[in-house]
Computed example of a mutant assay.
Amino acid sequence: MYSAVADNSSESESFSELGARALVADQAKPCQCELLSVKKAARIKKYCVTRELQKRAEKICSTEIEYVFSDHFVQADAGEQILQPLHKLCLELNPGIDEESEGVAIHYAPLYSVPLLEKEQEVILFKGMNYLKYRAAVLRDTIDLKSPCVGVLDRIEQKLKDAHRLRDYIIQANLRLVVSIAKSLTDRANSFEEIVSDGQMPLIRAVEIFDIDRGNRFSTYGTWAIRNFLFRSTKKGRKYRKTFVSGVESAAMGLSDFRSTPRSHESYHRSIQKVLKQVLHTLDEREQLILKRRFGLYQSDTPEKFREIADDLGISTERVRQLTIRSLQRMRDVIEEQNLEIPEIPEII
């Protein structure tokens, strides 16, 4: 069930060589020897060789190469600046069972076969993946379908293969996001295994379209993508969606549960406040007041209960709750549009 993405241990050696291979290939000049050998072979077996090569070229030209463009890709030293760090990192990374897998059922161990990525590692892998796709797309534009160069086709296919390998590594390192979210959505109709399997689809897509140049961690964007997908596809998720409509709300609602600890009070609390302050201006005065009081942004810096806010405003507790949810729903689009980073709180997810 997880083999397509999660179990790549057999490719660990090729992964360690990926960076060096990508760097050498990027520095190579357009080849001519392969084309000559093909022409020589074509004279011996003209139809089979040339037709096979043309089919291969046509397939490459018809394949969509999707990547997230970066201004760094067109710089004169792009290959060196992007692929040198990738080369070094690929030598350091070694897919294997991570410490977090201790105590996990053996059939879930592949989900933890790659350790969590540090921010710098994440940047290198995402840039490397998209740069390889970009270079493959550039080379594809040079293909002559009437007389395709086998060397160019080889380079394109290898770049796409290496980019796919990097993508799988990033996915593997973030499968914990799917697991943590799936735990809260398991019910009679949806088993844990089914939800984890379904959650891999939005994770894969999120990796493919994430823009690392914006400066945010992938875990924030990936959590959004996975939760939104699973919340729509599971009954329990749709129920949670009515209450916890966004990552901000999930985190903010948790302040009352964790604010007594030094970590949540000093770190998480400040982080949540910072995110809310950035988008509060999109609401009217009453909605701003409710959220400020509910999440500790008003005077005392202590989150207030719905009942306390309702008594002061002269409305029902249920009405305050509804206004809170509605306000957070309106803020969610702004947060997603600005791609703000929401602090991770594993206990809430």
Rank of each mutant, 00 (worst) to 15 (best):
D301G: 15
Q288S: 08
K292I: 07
F229C: 09
S267P: 00
A252H: 07
K239E: 14
F244P: 03
S316A: 06
L291P: 05
G247W: 04
L289D: 09
L283D: 03
K242S: 05
D257P: 00
P303W: 10
K236C: 08
S264C: 02
S256T: 05
K292S: 14
A310K: 08
T261M: 02
L313D: 07
L280A: 05
S267G: 03
R293I: 01
D257M: 09
T302N: 14
S260F: 10
F229L: 05
T234M: 07
Q329H: 10
R293W: 08
L328M: 12
A252V: 08
K239I: 12
R321Y: 14
F244Q: 04
R263L: 07
Q273Y: 01
P303L: 12
S267Q: 04
L283F: 08
L313I: 13
Y240I: 11
K236R: 15
T324E: 15
S260A: 11
L230N: 13
L323M: 15
K274W: 07
E287Q: 10
K274M: 07
L276A: 01
L255H: 00
F231K: 07
H265L: 01
F231L: 10
R263Y: 11
R238C: 14
L313A: 07
Q322T: 09
I325W: 09
Q278W: 05
I315Y: 04
E266M: 04
S264T: 03
E249Q: 12
R293P: 06
Q273K: 06
R232S: 15
F295A: 13
D284G: 08
E285G: 01
R270K: 10
D257S: 09
L323T: 04
D312K: 05
V279P: 01
L255V: 00
D284F: 07
Q288C: 11
D301N: 14
I315K: 08
T234L: 09
I315H: 03
E249M: 13
F231A: 10
L276T: 03
S264Q: 01
A251I: 06
E285R: 11
Q329R: 15
H269L: 01
S246Y: 05
T261R: 01
R263D: 06
G247V: 08
R307C: 02
F229N: 09
D257N: 05
L297D: 04
F244W: 09
L283S: 07
I272Q: 00
E308T: 15
S260N: 11
L230F: 13
E318R: 10
Q288I: 03
G237A: 13
Q273R: 12
D312T: 08
N228R: 13
R270E: 11
G314M: 06
A310V: 06
F306V: 05
S327D: 10
E266V: 11
E304V: 05
V245N: 09
F231M: 12
R238Q: 15
S327N: 09
E304S: 11
L313Y: 09
Q273E: 06
R238E: 14
T317H: 10
R326I: 13
V320D: 13
S300I: 08
S271I: 00
H281Q: 10
I309L: 03
R232C: 11
K235D: 14
I325D: 06
S246V: 04
R232A: 15
R238L: 13
D312Q: 09
R263K: 08
T317F: 01
S256I: 06
R294P: 11
H281S: 14
L283K: 05
G314Q: 04
A251C: 06
V320Q: 13
R270M: 02
R307W: 05
R238I: 08
F258S: 01
